[in-house]
Every structure is written in C-alpha cells, then in structure tokens.
Simulated scan of single mutants.
Amino acid sequence: MIMIIKSINDNLHYIIECFKRGDIIVLPTDTLFALSCDASNVESVRKIFEYKVRGKEKSLPLFFYDIEQIRQVCELNNLALMLAQRFWPGALTLVLPIKKNQNLIAENVYNSGESLAVRIPNSMHLQTVIKELGKPIVATSANISGQAPVKDSAEALKVFGERVVIIEGKSKPLPSTIIKINDKDYEVIREGQIKINQIEE
C-alpha cells in the first residue's frame, strides 16, 4: 500500500507513530529530501543502508532536537559550540567525534566509525517530531548511493516504491554545508547553503 502524507504539519502525531513503529520515511527538510528513521532502531537503520545501497563502512547523518541531545552522543569542543550557536538551527552539518559510551543511537548508524555528521534542522515541524520521539532521526539524502537526490514525492515513489512512507514537499536547491571539527581547527567537506566565507567569519 502506498502511503503519501500530504502535510507534515497536519499529521505530526501520525508521523511520530510511523517513526515509533520503525517505518522508513522520505521527508522534506530545510535542505534536500531525507531518507529517515528512528536512529535508535537497529532494524530500521539496516533498511536505510539496504534501500540506499550504501556501503556498511559509512555512517548515516542525523538530525537532533537541540545541542543537549547532541551532547549525549558526540563531543563538542569550543569551536563546534561556536559554529553550532551561530548556525543552528540551519543548514550546517558538523562532523563530530562520537562518545565511546553513548547509548542514544544504534551502533549500526556509525558501524564502529569514530565520528558522526549531525545538525539541528531549521524546521519547527521536524524539531517537534524529534522532541516528541525523544531520539534523533536519520537524515541521509533520499537517493540510491551515487545517484542524484530525489526532488519531490513523485520521484521518491519511483525510487523507493511502497517500502517507504512519503511526506509531500519540495526539495531546496542546495544541500547543507559540511564541516569536520578537528582538535584545534576544521576542514570543509562540502560547501552548500552556508558559504565558506560565512564560516570563516
């Protein structure tokens, strides 16, 4: 059965139920469409790797509700905090070291890797979903690895079919900007909506 939800705003409680029961959801964000699930659900995370045909050695990016929730999973140094306070919620993804003893997300999200791509999306609806769920959600681009991200719900249906719940919406033209935080400095992985000169300021 094809499940297409017309509006995230009018169906927040139903969408939260979908996350709780382990559904894979294609949803519009403040950047590109995301393939998403509850980041603590091992089986749902496994399906996302399978649907994307993504290498198991990679990790999956996550959306969080706030900085305190991120602290439960990742280490934030002063530089990370400064960038977070300046650009979140928004289109900046930070790649941060994972805490060794975290127990908020499933281990197969990062598959023994040492860092994780995280951000707080600039979407009150998504923030509400994450807050109510009480856990971060996976937010990887909605595509088969190596192919272009889907632009809308019709394209999502073509790519993923009836295996996913689809929320209607439009993709923004640019992805998030990705910055990897090292001990003392940072490395630009991808320039997206936020320009590098804004980061350097």
Rank of each mutant, 00 (worst) to 15 (best):
13 H>C: 10
76 L>S: 07
23 D>A: 12
72 Q>W: 01
77 N>L: 10
39 A>N: 05
10 D>M: 11
10 D>T: 08
64 F>L: 08
76 L>T: 06
11 N>L: 06
13 H>I: 12
40 S>P: 09
90 G>R: 02
72 Q>T: 04
35 L>R: 02
26 V>R: 00
60 L>M: 11
23 D>E: 15
35 L>G: 03
17 E>M: 13
57 E>D: 12
36 S>R: 06
88 W>R: 05
15 I>Y: 02
69 Q>N: 13
27 L>K: 01
87 F>E: 03
22 G>C: 10
24 I>G: 02
67 I>E: 09
39 A>L: 12
50 E>S: 13
30 D>Y: 03
45 V>F: 07
37 C>D: 05
42 V>Q: 07
60 L>Y: 10
46 R>M: 11
24 I>R: 01
13 H>K: 15
8 I>K: 01
11 N>Y: 07
69 Q>D: 01
85 Q>T: 15
43 E>F: 15
52 K>D: 02
86 R>F: 14
72 Q>V: 01
20 K>C: 07
22 G>M: 06
77 N>Y: 15
33 F>Y: 09
17 E>W: 04
52 K>I: 04
35 L>D: 02
84 A>K: 01
59 S>K: 03
41 N>L: 08
17 E>T: 13
15 I>C: 03
86 R>L: 12
31 T>H: 02
87 F>L: 12
14 Y>K: 14
39 A>F: 05
64 F>M: 04
12 L>D: 01
57 E>S: 13
76 L>V: 10
53 V>Y: 08
14 Y>L: 13
42 V>H: 08
13 H>Y: 14
82 M>Y: 09
46 R>A: 12
51 Y>E: 00
21 R>P: 06
41 N>E: 05
71 R>G: 05
59 S>G: 13
21 R>W: 01
20 K>H: 06
76 L>W: 09
13 H>G: 13
18 C>S: 09
43 E>W: 04
50 E>F: 08
76 L>K: 14
14 Y>P: 00
36 S>P: 14
51 Y>N: 02
49 F>T: 15
60 L>A: 08
89 P>A: 14
88 W>S: 07
32 L>S: 00
91 A>I: 10
49 F>Q: 05
33 F>V: 09
81 L>I: 14
74 C>M: 06
89 P>N: 12
29 T>K: 01
18 C>R: 04
79 L>E: 11
57 E>P: 06
72 Q>I: 00
47 K>I: 09
32 L>H: 04
20 K>S: 13
90 G>C: 12
85 Q>A: 09
21 R>L: 10
48 I>R: 02
52 K>P: 06
64 F>E: 01
25 I>P: 00
86 R>A: 10
17 E>K: 15
35 L>K: 00
61 P>L: 06
31 T>L: 07
36 S>M: 14
54 R>M: 08
79 L>Q: 05
12 L>E: 01
57 E>L: 10
49 F>R: 02
26 V>E: 04
28 P>M: 12
14 Y>A: 09
84 A>S: 14
66 D>V: 00
55 G>E: 07
35 L>E: 02
35 L>Y: 03
51 Y>F: 12
